[in-house]
């Protein structure tokens, strides 16, 4: 009898721990194909260097993959024997190597897009998660994923996703560190490597799509406004942020006010939706009428203070404080206080 009970308990544990065991197993099988991961990561690194016009070397591979110089040199030899790169002072990709690298990059960026749009995995985990996943997804699975996501062309960091045939657009980005004080621009990309720098930039609340206005620059620091909030970072960090000029119709607003600042009974006009609001949530808000130009008013507040009911396009919608904080507004006239 005890045996049966033990069996039941084991089954229960299995069911509960099922995803963990699953992912454990996946990680183990990856250790076996460690070599493949190194190969793919090295190719990606060299591709990245070429895209950014910097020199990819054995040394930089060692640094990027966190392996010894000897190990990196062996890896480079292996890649050459596979016909993926041409060695020399500077490592160069062959056509085959480039297309391989682009395939891996495509999977990586698609997966980041998926995590950003379709799951609630926090932003700081996307890149690492995708680093594991990129070696794990077959070409067929990747295409199915792409279709499911509506064949996206950019990843959530603003990087273009290569097409199946390995095409990429020209880029005309500049680093934030190249701006002078008084310049305005739009963040188009935040480099997600190294992770420590990226985590810091995310912690500052920066994301692609923000409007920036540089206040002062010096060799120690760059001070700028991002959507009206003041941010100070080191120039080294600023090099990881890419910017593009504002499109003509974009105007850089004064300090953004958020919907959360609207008091009960007040009315305002929506001027934008933070890019940090993504995926289903973003679409839902836009469907409900949270788009630039529409009127929004704070109607009443729930018993516990969160959520808050807003009138949007004639409908009363309850939104949580966290979401209200992601909606930018221009305060309008105040409704005369009613009893």
């Amino acid at each position: 009898m005890e045996l049966i009970l033990i069996a039941i308990v084991i089954v229960l544990l299995l069911v509960i721990l099922y995803p963990k065991i699953g992912s454990l197993a996946a990680r183990k099988s990856m250790n076996a194909s460690n070599e493949r991961i190194y190969v793919e990561d090295a190719l990606k690194h060299i591709y990245d260097c070429e895209y950014k016009n910097i020199n990819g070397t054995v040394q930089s591979i060692a640094g990027n993959l966190n392996i010894s110089y000897d190990r990196a040199a062996k890896l480079a030899e292996r890649l050459e024997s596979l016909g993926m790169i041409i060695t020399g002072d500077v490592l160069r990709l062959t056509a085959e190597g480039r297309s391989y690298a682009l395939r891996v990059i495509r999977v990586h960026r698609l997966w980041e897009r998926y995590l950003a749009d379709e799951t609630s995995i926090p932003e700081k985990e996307w890149h690492l998660n995708a680093e594991l996943k990129e070696h794990d997804i077959s070409a067929i699975e990747a295409e199915a994923l792409s279709v499911q996501l509506g064949n996206p062309v950019y990843d959530p960091h603003g990087d273009p996703i290569p097409t199946v045939n390995g095409e990429l657009p020209e880029k005309n980005w500049k680093p934030l560190s190249s701006l002078q004080s008084g310049d305005v621009a739009r963040i188009v990309h935040i480099e997600d490597e190294p992770n420590t720098v990226y985590a810091q930039l995310v912690a500052e609340g920066l994301y692609p799509g923000m409007h920036v206005k540089v206040i002062e620059t010096s060799s120690e620091r760059i001070k700028f406004e991002a959507n009206g909030e003041e941010v100070i970072i080191a120039p080294l960090f600023a090099g990881n942020i890419s910017i593009a000029p504002l499109a003509e119709f974009e105007t850089i607003p004064e300090k953004y006010k958020t919907l959360l600042e609207l008091k009960r009974g007040q009315e305002a006009e929506v001027i934008g939706l933070s890019k940090a609001c993504r995926g289903t949530q973003r679409r839902r808000l836009m469907d409900l009428g949270v788009v630039p130009g529409s009127k929004i008013s704070n109607e009443f507040i729930s018993t516990w203070g969160d959520p808050i009911a807003y009138k949007i396009c004639g409908a009363t919608i309850g939104l949580r404080r966290k979401q209200a904080k992601q909606i930018f507004i221009k305060p309008g006239k105040t409704e005369s206080a009613k009893a």
Binding site: Y18, P19, G22, S23, A25, A26, W111, Y114, E118, I137, E141, L145, Q148
Partner: peptide, 8 residues
């Protein structure tokens, strides 16, 4: 396991 699918 493959946690990508939205079949579930």
């Amino acid at each position: 396991m493959n946690d990508k699918g939205c079949e579930t």
